[in-house]
Amino acid sequence: MSLLLPESGLLFWMLLAFGIVFIILAKYGFPVIVKMVEERRQYIDQSLQVAKDANEQLAKLKMESEAILSKANKEQGRILKEAMRERDKIIYDARKQAEVAAQKELNEVKEQIQLEKEEAVRDIRRQVAVLSVDIAEKVIRKTIANEEEQMDMIDRMLDELLSSKP
C-alpha cells in the first residue's frame, strides 16, 4: 500500500459518499443557496434603484430650492425697493409738513410783530397827543392870562370845529 495512492475500495466509498452528498446538496441545498443569492441580488438592484431615484429627487429638490431662493431674493429686493420708496415719501411728506408749519409759524410771528408795531405806533401817537395837549395847554395859559380871553378862544375853536365838519 502506498501512501499516495488510495485503495480502490476506499476510492469507491469516497465517490459514493461524495455522490450522495452532492445529490442531496443539488436537490435541497443548491436551490436554497441560489434562491438566497438571487434574492440578495434583487435586493441590491432594488436598493441601487431606490438610491438612484433618491438622487434624482434630491437633484429636483435642490433645483426647486434654488428657484425658491432666487424668487425669495427677488421678492426681498422688491420689498426693499418699495420700503425705500415709502421711506423717501415719508421723509418728503414730513419735510413738506415741516415747511408748512414753519411758514405758518413765520406768518403768525410776522402778524404778531405787525400788531405789536401798530400798537407801539398808537401808543406813541397817544403819548404825542397827550404831550401836545399838555404843551398847548401851557402855551395857551401863558398867552391867555385871564378867563375872558380863554372863553373867547374856546368859542373860536368850537366854531372852527363845527364849520370844518360837513
Rank of each mutant, 00 (worst) to 15 (best):
I24L: 09
I24W: 11
I24K: 02
K27Y: 13
K27D: 07
G29V: 01
E38Q: 13
E38R: 05
E38D: 13
E38C: 02
E39K: 04
R40I: 03
R40D: 12
Q42A: 15
Y43Q: 10
I44M: 01
L48V: 13
Q49V: 09
A54S: 10
A54F: 04
E56D: 06
Q57V: 15
A59W: 00
A59Q: 05
L61I: 12
K62E: 10
K62Y: 11
M63R: 12
E66T: 15
E66K: 10
L69G: 13
L69N: 09
K71T: 14
K71H: 08
K71G: 08
K74V: 08
E75A: 02
E75R: 08
R78F: 08
R78S: 07
E82Q: 05
A83L: 14
M84N: 15
M84W: 13
M84I: 12
R85H: 15
R85V: 11
R85K: 14
E86R: 14
E86G: 01
K89R: 13
K89I: 13
I90A: 08
Y92M: 13
Y92R: 15
R95H: 13
K96D: 09
Q97T: 06
E99N: 08
A102Y: 07
L106G: 03
N107K: 15
V109N: 13
K110N: 07
E111N: 10
I113P: 04
Q114L: 15
E116K: 06
E118I: 10
E118C: 00
A120T: 05
V121I: 14
Q127M: 02
L131N: 15
